[in-house]
Computed example of a mutant assay.
Amino acid sequence: MSDTVLDQNAWLERIGISSPLPPTLETLNRLIFAHAHSIAYETLDIMLGRPPRLDVPTLQQKMIAGKRGGYCFEQNMLFRAGLRSLGFKITSLQGRVVRGLAIDAPRPAIHMLLKVDLPEGAYLADVGFGNLAPTSALLLAPQIEQQTPHELMRFIDVDGELTLQAKLRENWHHIYRVIPHPRYDAEYEITNWYTATHPETPYQGNIIAAKPGPNKSRITMYNTRVTVRDADGLAEKRWLATTREFKDVLCGEFGLNLSNQEIEDCIAVMKHKGTGDTPHPFFA
């Protein structure tokens, strides 16, 4: 996949940055924060029978020109292209999601991550995890508590894989283990196809969206349930009932460019195949 076809100006405009910036740690933090707040995590195309494509022209058309969001492979592929266009040195990685599971759970590598090499060291960049994606770069080193614009985070070494954790209220929650070995794009294509088409993944029948908000808040949507978590970790939940309410949240609060028909189709799939209000460990 060639990153050279990225329209850098269009990407920067989409995330609210007016001009190219030097490839520094300060710039990386600014880009992560801006991208995460501008382009929501969402998996609705999978519900609509449209497995995501990961080539940069398609990602640009969908997420920049089309004003949609995407899930981890889409988000981090687009972000990687943007970073490379600005001169950042990137290594593509994968992670094992352990959100809501044991820290050493035997998990497949189904999450895309980026390692950014800077004079200050190697940093993790991830704009595609959804409700707990770090909103700044994180130094890839264990046992260092690192403050982001949202949660306090750290890495714990588990047999050579750094496990990302976030502190919610007084407790540390596991997110994913980082596999330190470089990955080829073909491996993302295989994993993307699996996560987008396997009938037992949560994306087939459930409306899922997430986005960081102001004042360290985060908003997450899982089917009819919308959760806003504040800086102290307190969650306010509400449940949607009408198509109008779904449209107000998806198009208004998440900023997604969806037609009325697409929203109605997602609701129909959710009612037929979704897991209802049953909590999912990845989207708690």
Rank of each mutant, 00 (worst) to 15 (best):
M1L: 10
M1D: 09
M1H: 08
S2W: 07
T4Y: 05
L6K: 15
D7C: 14
N9C: 11
A10I: 10
L12V: 11
R14I: 03
G16Y: 03
P22A: 11
P23H: 08
E26R: 04
T27K: 05
T27G: 01
T27D: 09
L28A: 09
L28S: 05
R30A: 12
I32W: 11
A34C: 09
H37S: 06
H37C: 00
H37W: 00
H37F: 00
H37Y: 03
S38V: 01
A40C: 05
E42W: 01
E42P: 03
P52W: 11
R53D: 13
D55I: 01
D55Y: 02
T58L: 08
Q61M: 07
A65C: 07
A65Q: 10
G70A: 14
N76A: 12
F79A: 14
R80N: 15
L83F: 07
G87H: 02
T91F: 07
V97D: 13
V98G: 15
G100S: 08
A102R: 15
A102H: 15
D104S: 07
A105D: 14
M112Y: 07
L113C: 09
L114K: 07
K115I: 02
P119C: 01
P119F: 01
P119M: 06
G121T: 00
A122E: 15
L124W: 10
F129Q: 05
S136A: 13
A137V: 12
A141C: 00
A141D: 02
I144C: 10
I144A: 06
E145G: 07
Q146D: 12
Q147R: 10
P149L: 10
R154K: 13
F155M: 11
F155Y: 08
I156K: 15
D157A: 14
V158M: 05
E161A: 06
L162Q: 12
L162R: 02
L162G: 01
T163R: 06
Q165W: 08
L168R: 04
R169C: 09
H173F: 02
I175G: 12
R177H: 03
I179G: 01
H181I: 06
H181P: 00
P182Q: 03
Y184V: 05
E187Y: 03
T197H: 06
E200S: 08
I208T: 00
A210P: 02
V226P: 03
T227M: 03
V228P: 00
R229C: 03
D232S: 12
E236C: 13
W239L: 09
A241V: 15
T242R: 06
F246V: 06
K247C: 08
L250C: 09
E253V: 12
G255L: 04
N257Q: 14
N257R: 09
N257F: 04
N257Y: 05
Q261S: 14
E262F: 07
D265C: 02
C266F: 04
M270T: 09
H272T: 12
K273R: 14
T275L: 11
P281A: 13
P281F: 06
